[in-house]
Every structure is written in C-alpha cells, then in structure tokens.
Design a binder for these strands. Structure first.
Lengths: 207, 207
DNA sequence: GTCTATACACCGATAGAC
DNA sequence: GTCTATCGGTGTATAGAC
C-alpha cells in the first residue's frame, strides 16, 4: 500500500523480533538457570544458540540486561497474596515452595546468586515490593500493617533463600508439608498481628 | 614479649609473615565490603595496598580464597544462641541486627551478593549450620526440634538478607526496636514450638 | 538493515628473570 | 620475594559483509 513503509516481508507474526533473539533467549534462560550468572559467559550462550557472541550484545545490550530479561520471577510472584487472610501464611508457602515448578526455583536462585549486581538487586527489591509487600499492606489490618507486611516478606525471602539458593539439604529432604505447616504458623503470626506490643497478652483480634 | 620497636624494619621473630600480607588483607577487607566481589578486582586491591597484583595471588592463592579469608562472619555469629530460651528470639535479632556493627553487616551483604560462587555458598551454608542451626538443635525441646531450628535460621536469614543485602529502605529507616519486637515474636513461635500440629487454631495461651 | 567478524581493554592467573 | 611479560578468557564497541 503505502510506499513509505519499509519492506516488511512478514505482515503477521512478530515483525520486530528476530528468530535469533528467541534462540538466544532460550539458551540464556537455560544456562543462567543451570550455572548462575558468573559461571555463564556470553560466549557460552552464543555457542549454545549457534550464533556469534557479538550479536548477543547487539540484541540485548549487555550481559546484565540479558540476565534480567530472562531471569524474571514476576510470573511466579503474581497473585500471591490472594485468598482468605486466615490461610494466607500457608497458601503463600504452598505457592512459593511446594507448588513452585523447579524452573522458577532455579531462576530465583540465579537472581539471589547475582545479588551484588546493582541492577539485579534493584530488580529483586522492586519485584518483591510490587508483588508481595504492597499487596500485603493493602490486606493487613491492625497496628504496624506496613511493617508487618515487610517482615512477612522477609520471612518468605528467608525460606526461599534457604531452600532454593542455599540448597539446605536437610530442609529440602524433609517432606515439604511438614515444613509448610510449621513455618506457616510463624508467618501467620505476623499476618494476624495478634501479638500485643506491650506484653505477653495475646489477643486473638482478627479485626 | 619483645619491647615495642616502632622502627623495626625486620622483625626477626617471624620470618614467614610478610607485612604485605597484612596490608593486602586490610585493603581487600575494605574494598570487598564496599563494592562486593564482582566489582572489586585483584588489581584494585593491589593498588590500594600499594603492591604488585601478582603478590596478591601469590600470597592468597586466588581471588576467591582472599575473599573468603577476609569476608568472615564467624566472629559475629559466635555465641549467638546463648541466653535464656524464652527470650532467645529477641536476643538473636538484637545481636544480629541491632547490636551488629556496620562492618559485619557489610561483610554479610558481600557474602550474600557472591552466593553463586560455589565456595562462598558452601561457606555460608556451613557457617550458619555450625553457629546457628546446630546450637539451636541442642537447645530446642519438643517435636521437630531439628526442623524448627532450621526454620528459625531461615527466618533470621530472611531478615538479614532483607535488611543488609537488599537494603530495604523502609525496613532500615524504621526504628529497629519496633522491627525486633514484632519479628522476635514470630521467631519465638518456632523456638517455643507451642503451636499444635493438628489443626490451625489461633493461639491464645502462650505458655 | 540484519548479521558477522575483527579488535580492544580488562580480568584472574602463571612463568621466569632479577 | 618481588617484578616483567604474558597467557587465555571476559564483556563489549565498531567496522565491514550480505
């Protein structure tokens, strides 16, 4: 039709994404998840994808950018705080630990492992903030709701780091249901906020 | 033993201890804690110490070995689980978060940041195991003592990661006492193990 | 324009001369 | 022991080929 439009041989499909980009992304996802950031070189990814190392940079800007673009945990974090508040502790752990697919676990471990990269730290920070902390703040009631939401996130983060990143053997070998039941109670303590702030006078107040 | 000789160029007492080693260690400690592992090069450390880069490797074997030798968290973890069991949750957090000196916090953050190095992960794993998990196992009573000890460690780890490694702004800006009081209760839940294991029922009688 | 190859500065680490 | 020279390897920019 219009002559101004440059020759686009593919009217449908994905005009701006090359097939090479997809192959590179697949290889990067696999290798980063397998070996982590520091032990995966751009040349390794390029070799696995069957392309030249420089076009990896040409398409994705940098190794860090490719890492962040492939190692995304947003999908696994979405809709995490939904469901009844009284069972939220258990459901959080169920979705994040028990029902999580191994691929997401590897992605999380890779992100934690590369945490001294400022951009990675920034992403993990804002991803947990957006998908866990903020939704929790809106759901929690009682005193110190925001602080409690952040502390619940810290609890979750600790279990995820211990299980997926540190690969604590005696924690992963235990049947996960037992771990969930016990840990969920501690998480639920902060969700409920039942503990008074002056003394040991717990009031079961689900306001 | 020997009288203090300020201008002693060659202390003959220790022929194999070089002063360069000490200078390198100081520079490495400062730079690793400041910028983390990946952003600190051996050449940077050598320049800061005023020595040749090859001496750094010659004396410490490798960059990883130097990192592990300087970024040690054993000192800050020692004797952590002492004190009355009923206040252990609060005391753990006090010693690790409130009373911890900033230097130890930076060291911890550097270790977490380099967690995808197998040797670093191994060290963090066995250090928390030796200084927190094992002493806790021997002190806890009741069912699932070992599992609870590991979960308490996960809770602690989560708070440390959130505060020191992730540098959550809204968590560090809050007065630490409030954080400790609230989080300590959740930790104490696992220490006491008061929660029944059959059904979920909000606790009203805490011991 | 998309892709490819040459090239560079830096990295950690080694061998060998003083 | 300390330095010079150098190795293979890294991430990345750039100039050229289709």
């Amino acid at each position: 039709m219009t002559a101004a439009q440059p020759a686009a041989p593919r009217p449908r499909g994905r005009p701006r994404s090359t097939r090479a980009q997809e192959v590179i992304r697949d290889a990067a996802t696999r290798l980063f998840a397998e070996r982590g950031f520091s032990r995966t070189s751009v040349r390794d990814i390029a070799a696995a994808a069957g392309v030249d190392p420089t076009i990896v940079i040409r398409h994705f800007g940098s190794k860090d950018a490719l890492f962040l673009q492939t190692m995304s945990v947003d999908e696994g974090f979405r809709g995490l705080t939904e469901g009844p508040l009284e069972d939220l502790g258990r459901n959080l752990l169920r979705r994040l630990v028990a029902h999580a697919d191994p691929a997401q676990a590897e992605v999380f471990a890779a992100l934690i492992g590369a945490l001294d990269r400022p951009e990675v730290r920034n992403y993990v920070e804002q991803s947990t903030e957006r998908h866990i902390v903020q939704p929790l703040i809106e759901r929690l009631t009682g005193a110190d709701a925001e602080l409690r939401a952040r502390l619940v996130t810290a609890q979750i983060l600790g279990l995820l780091v211990a299980v997926w990143a540190l690969r604590r053997p005696d924690l992963t070998s235990t049947p996960l249901d037992d771990v969930l039941d016990i840990y969920a109670r501690a998480v639920q303590t902060l969700i409920d906020g039942t503990a008074g702030n002056d003394d040991r006078s717990p009031e079961r107040g689900s306001t």
